[in-house]
Amino acid sequence: MSHNFGVVAALRDAPDVVIVVFTLLTQLGDFWWYLSVLTLAYAFAGVHPRLRGERVRERVAFVIAVALGALAVTYLLKLAVTHSRPPGAETARDLAWLPPSLDPVWRSLATSDSYSLPSGHATGSAAIYGAIALVSRWGSRRLRYGGAAALVALIALSRVVIGVHYLGDVLAGLAVGGGYLAVVWFATRGRRVKRAFSIALAVALVGMFATLTPETAAIAGATLAGRITWTIVGGRLPAFSTRTEGVVTAVAALAGAVLAGGTAFVGDASVVALFVAAAGGITLILTSPLATERLLG
């Protein structure tokens, strides 16, 4: 393909250790990873002294909104372009030294199906790690931006190294993710979380009405729930939490993350069920600090 530049073919003979390392690295760009980390950050935001304050949870909620919007943009473009993945993307490299019991796990990590353009990992990484660098207050701005750029570049490269994307796919993903973050940041300045969810919802609804699939329905449910829930809980979240409250909040929020993120692994459920499940999961995540305060307070 013209946008491949021969990179995928050149990497087919890379040593096993290179493929394994980049297969593990690529998980840092997977939606399950984003959602898990952001959920825990949101839950424990009121516990650690450096993470206390309503604005901390507000900033994490902003990144969650960006994550959902980036996911919506990715599926909208994938279904519009319908570009195939490189040959062999659905087949993992055989590792003779790998125990047979781990072979299914390896294959699930090292392969991808569905459409290819843009790369969801590149799109999501550019938007989410970029958003974290923008809203975080840790370290210097140069360190945050440089670290985010390096991590995003490695995640994008990993998709090419393991052979599940063409180089053009990841370059397009970086442009789409960075562009989406720029639009959201310009419109919200990182403070108007409700507006960030509104932008994500608008994209998700376009995707769902353009092509109704389990994925587009779940994303629409998640973004709608985020928009409605933040209208209710935004500004009412506790700024301080005990460690016990943090743990209870984390358990509840992670249950929400499993409910929302698990929709990606349910093949036979109806689009309505996935819409409701994703909406319920995001609602549980965003309301968990307030619910825990009411329960234990």
Rank of each mutant, 00 (worst) to 15 (best):
R191F: 00
D103G: 09
L224H: 06
P289D: 08
I128R: 06
A61T: 03
V81P: 12
R85A: 10
S158M: 06
R52V: 13
S270W: 11
A204H: 04
R192M: 01
G177N: 11
V135Q: 12
G53C: 08
Y166C: 01
T74N: 15
A96L: 13
F31Y: 12
A200K: 05
A10T: 07
T211M: 06
V152R: 02
R50H: 06
T211G: 01
M1V: 04
V233G: 02
S136D: 09
G139L: 14
A196N: 03
S116F: 08
R93S: 00
W33R: 10
A156E: 10
A41V: 12
L79F: 13
L274R: 12
P118K: 05
I228H: 03
V160R: 08
G53Y: 05
T213C: 06
R59L: 13
G88P: 10
M1C: 03
H165F: 07
A222Y: 01
P86K: 07
D30T: 08
A279V: 10
A239R: 08
I199F: 04
A277S: 10
W97Y: 09
L290Y: 15
F275A: 07
V160T: 13
A172W: 03
T91L: 03
P118V: 11
W230L: 03
A80K: 14
A70H: 00
F44K: 13
A252P: 01
V66I: 14
F5G: 12
T26N: 01
A9G: 14
R144L: 15
A43P: 03
D268S: 15
R236Y: 11
T188P: 01
V20Y: 10
A45P: 06
L174Y: 04
A122W: 09
L286K: 03
A149C: 07
A149M: 11
H165A: 09
L167Y: 11
T242K: 08
W97N: 02
V81Y: 15
G261M: 02
L237Y: 05
